[in-house]
């Protein structure tokens, strides 16, 4: 298989994977009957953005953007999107922790995590 064939076959695949992750995550959010499950679905939706960003910065035959083992000037992938994904993952993890903390408090106060069985908060 030549490089050109490989390019043609995989041209749209990464974007389809990202769209699929987005769709699956949103399906999970819409059908969720438990807030912990819902937080997990949100992280799936978020991972679609990682796939898009990393694939935008990818380049066939290029190495990592670290010029320690190979000298500067060797072809490398885009470091800008990698830096974005890096900070995004760490901040996303703490935001998930914040949402899960809300779930803990909700379960303490209402005894359930099912959105269907919750009523509006009252004083």
């Amino acid at each position: 298989m030549t490089t050109h064939d490989r390019l043609d076959m995989t041209a749209g695949l990464p974007w389809c994977v990202a769209a699929w992750l987005l769709g699956v995550g949103l399906y999970g959010v819409a059908t969720s009957r438990n807030y912990v499950h819902l937080v997990a679905c949100l992280t799936v939706v978020q991972s679609a953005t990682y796939v898009v960003l990393l694939c935008v910065g990818y380049r066939w035959g290029a190495g990592p953007p670290i010029f320690y083992a190979h000298p500067p000037g060797t072809p490398a992938v885009d470091p800008v999107v990698q830096a974005l994904v890096l900070t995004d993952i760490v901040v996303g993890a703490t935001v998930s922790a914040l949402l899960l903390a809300m779930c803990v408090q909700l379960h303490k106060r209402k005894g359930t995590l099912d959105p269907e069985r919750l009523r509006p908060m009252r004083q």
Partner: peptide
């Protein structure tokens, strides 16, 4: 096209960071 399009910003930083900032990890 996946893996086969220009990356102007990334290339600029990959070119400049080792030279201007003496840093080998451009991320």
């Amino acid at each position: 096209r996946f893996g086969d399009h220009p990356l102007p910003y990334g290339d600029a930083i990959n070119h400049d960071a080792p030279r201007d900032r003496h840093v080998s990890n451009t991320v």
